[in-house]
Design a protein around this nucleic acid. Structure first.
Lengths: 99, 99
DNA sequence: AAGGATTTGTGCGTATGTATG
DNA sequence: ACATACATACGCACAAATCCT
């Protein structure tokens, strides 16, 4: 049994939805973008079931390569935050058939 | 209630562990490689906890781009088939701390 | 400890295919 | 047919972690 125990109880603050990508810091760009998008969704930029901006649009807005944008989206998709359909777009929320 | 119901009960045969990549067919190369590696693991080419060949090695063996090899491995990693450590390699089985 | 070799991680660019509207 | 949007593949460069000498 450990001599001391610590209970960490907290809520994640989340990043600034208006933050820009920092190409220097320790956090990689694709993770930064993922958190920014998560924050923007939480803030209500796009409602449940509504599409977020296209990959091309995000590339323009954040000055990242498309592959980097896609990795950020893929990360959110894994977590059920967004849902992607080829040829259509990426939507807020989990896939409609999560069975 | 549907007029008919069908019960599909089957075991997946799995691809030939010795198969090569078909750049023409309907199945994309990275999915093919994922299935081939899955088959090779099932066959026992590498035991639980043992490393599979490096990405560079797989690139040479299957004639694919590294990014493609990485996507195949990422797919297997998502499914808990393999487990990757930066600087070390990719090992058969789920991560040791799957908590 | 110091440095080199190996291996995975990240980012960018480009091209082409597939799906949708 | 055409435009838009996501999917896949290739290649290149450098960073970070690990391993070994």
């Amino acid at each position: 049994m450990p001599q001391r125990m610590r209970l960490f109880s907290f809520v994640t603050m989340g990043v600034d939805p208006n933050a820009e990508i920092d190409h220097e810091g320790p956090v990689t760009p694709y993770r930064q973008l993922a958190e920014i998008l998560r924050a923007r969704i939480a803030r209500g930029d796009w409602a449940e079931g509504r599409p977020i901006p296209s990959e091309t649009r995000l590339v323009q807005e954040y000055g990242l390569a498309r592959s980097t944008v896609r990795r950020a989206i893929a990360l959110l998709a894994e977590q059920g935050v967004v849902w992607t359909v080829q040829g259509r777009g990426t939507y807020v929320g989990p896939p409609p058939d999560e069975s």
